[in-house]
Design a protein around this nucleic acid. Structure first.
Lengths: 155, 155
DNA sequence: TTTAAATTTGACTAATATTGACTATTGATA
DNA sequence: TATCAATAGTCAATATTAGTCAAATTTAAA
């Protein structure tokens, strides 16, 4: 029915493990073998689904005994995370990236569902819809930074 | 037995499936093949018959394993109130007027305090920060209307 | 009948995923 | 120290989807 592509399947697999522990460690080549794909596909999945916007931190090591470690961001304890997100937003952000960020803030229970929904409605492409896409992304960045700053000082 | 154009037939087909489940996932090219039409006709049907006003939300993904997902939405009891507010907002609204509207939505317990504050922070002059005041009011109107549209349904 | 709106079509565009050749890093060993 | 083996990373080409837009056509309304 859904997720016919390998990337989604790998993502689900990793997230199902992460649902039980806050951190996992994998071997890229083993993963590739398990899912019958090329090793670089694992990088693709990690880069597109386990980045900071998505609420994950990834560390890795090459060479013998190498690994890829994926860790869930702890928004409650890790206070600087908001600053990091603010710097990721920078002066300009696409809806897609902002969407990921809001989604992970909801999943981490920093935002309620209805707050997240409201924000998404506001930063939607159709809402901002400025003739100039560049200007749109800049405006979205201002809105996102405003939100992140509020969250930072809220708790 | 009226107007049996392809668009209507596709619409009926999709709605007959949606009558049994709240959500369906299709592949554009498969649909096009099934109904012997060009793929973009599927977009036409979705844009004209499955928009938010009609009670549907559509999400999609391109690339390998791509899909189009159509989901029915649940309107809140008195959702037509929001339509009235939307027409009041019109094409342009000042911060002062928007503030009043958000305030009354809070007093009516449609919005929580933090939701109201969040919205006010976003539609503030400083956040929108557009040189042109006219443009600012128009943008604020679009944001307000999208918020109101979002409040018409839940989840 | 004339005009406006809705539908159909297809060329072009954009986003996402897959693959593999090449590169970089690390630790172990000669 | 130099080299090698065993990892992971990068990047660009290709494949696989869906989206956009406007011209052409058909249908409905005035």
């Amino acid at each position: 029915m859904q997720s016919q592509n390998i990337s989604d399947i790998i993502e689900k697999y990793l997230k199902s493990i992460l649902a039980e522990s806050d951190e996992i460690e994998i071997k890229r080549s083993e993963m590739a073998q398990l899912f019958n794909c090329v090793p670089s596909q694992i990088n693709y999945v990690i880069n597109t689904r386990f980045n900071v916007q998505n609420g994950y931190i990834v560390r890795s090591k090459r060479g013998g005994g190498g690994y890829i470690r994926i860790e869930k961001i702890n928004f409650v304890d890790d206070y600087d995370v908001f600053d990091e997100l603010i710097s990721i937003v920078g002066e300009s952000i696409s809806f897609k990236d902002a969407f990921q960020m809001i989604k992970s803030l909801f999943q981490a229970e920093v935002l309620t569902r209805s707050e997240a929904n409201l924000i998404l409605a506001i930063i939607d492409k159709k809402t901002l819809n400025l003739a100039d896409c560049k200007l749109e992304n800049m405006l979205r960045a201002r809105i996102m930074k405003n939100i992140l700053n509020r969250l930072k000082y809220d708790d």
